[in-house]
Design a protein around this nucleic acid. Structure first.
Lengths: 196, 196
DNA sequence: ACCTGAACACCGTTCAAGT
DNA sequence: ACCTGAACACCGTTCAAGT
């Protein structure tokens, strides 16, 4: 890549970062180009879709979250590792208002520039879930995609100004639901207490 | 209202119903006007905002849901009444893809044409919740707005094609979380079993 | 190689002009 | 009273023309 092109790219990316922080991920691409003193076509040549722009912008954060999941896997108890990683994920999305909808779409669209990152994130969460299930501290009838969906739900909640004040409490409610040990059939099994 | 105006209004409303069913609540208003063989300005005079159009379209369903909550209050057990009403609410929104975001915005915006209906709906849910809490079958640290938020979360999940297949399972997960009897401090109270 | 203005087909809003 | 076409200020996409 030519030096001037690289400079343009980096500058657009920096401007996009502040614009998205201010207005959310649906901010007008024309507006970003204007604020970067660059033609709209130039922006689109570097980042052909909104997702591509976001991918470049979020890659670092994505990698960080994935790495943190790996560390938690050995450093914390299965329960703490899972719950506090979930909390980190939800908290992270609040910095990019509206990103949840794009991630939900990307997780099943291999064409999306965000696809790979979302799949990696889901896999990291799935490992923490499996570990917690093996330890008997997480319900056994959910999988990594369910966890991804629960994160998405809670992140979406934080994006809605009217409901955001409830996001923390409802995180706890959902977390407690994941942690109710035992399977979903507990009620049918009439007190199957372990005889110690 | 003049007879021709009424006819126009009703026709626009019917066309809007099918258009929204096909494409979701974000469908182009211009498109609705075109399909109704009416000027766009005419549509906007009858329904000055997208919310006003939806309000007219959803009023019947809203009233029905509210009424059903009232009936359940006397006909079913506190637990069944709450859970099956929640299920009805979530199922209902799937008919209007994207309506959840508008409802979440409307619940705190008195200017929105959907505001009154959303507030009424929340109140209906709050009564069912209070009844369940009084019976000791629902956790006591949530209120009507939390229930509204949980419905919104689950409805939003159903709107995302990639996550919709998990909506039913996660409804059960969330419902079980609401029904975990006792307060959020249960874990701190070291086995407070009732001595029968 | 890289950039850009301009044309394009959309959107919702507004309003003067018609019946 | 009610309706409407047209103008307006936006949007993302595309591409021929410039450096």
């Amino acid at each position: 890549m030519r030096a001037d092109a690289r400079k343009n790219r980096d500058h657009v990316l920096a401007v996009a970062g502040t614009a998205i922080t201010e207005q959310g991920v649906d901010v007008s691409l024309r507006d970003i180009a204007r604020r970067a003193d660059v033609g709209l076509a130039t922006l689109l040549r570097h980042f052909p879709t909104r997702e591509a722009l976001l991918e470049a912008l979020l890659r670092t954060s994505f990698d960080e979250l994935t790495a943190r999941a790996g560390q938690a896997e050995t450093a914390s108890s299965p329960e703490d590792a899972l719950v506090s990683w979930l909390r980190d994920c939800v908290a992270w999305t609040t910095e990019y208002r509206g990103v949840t909808v794009l991630m939900a779409a990307a997780i099943e669209d291999p064409e999306s520039a965000l696809h790979a990152s979302c799949v990696t994130l889901r896999a990291a969460g799935a490992r923490l879930l499996t570990r917690a299930q093996a330890a008997g501290v997480a319900r056994s009838d959910i999988d990594g995609t369910d966890v991804f969906a629960l994160i998405a739900m809670l992140a979406w909640l934080g994006d809605q100004p009217s409901l955001a004040p409830r996001a923390d409490r409802l995180f706890d409610v959902v977390a407690s639901a994941i942690l109710s040990a035992g399977s979903s059939h507990a009620q049918e099994e009439r007190s199957p207490r372990t005889r110690s």
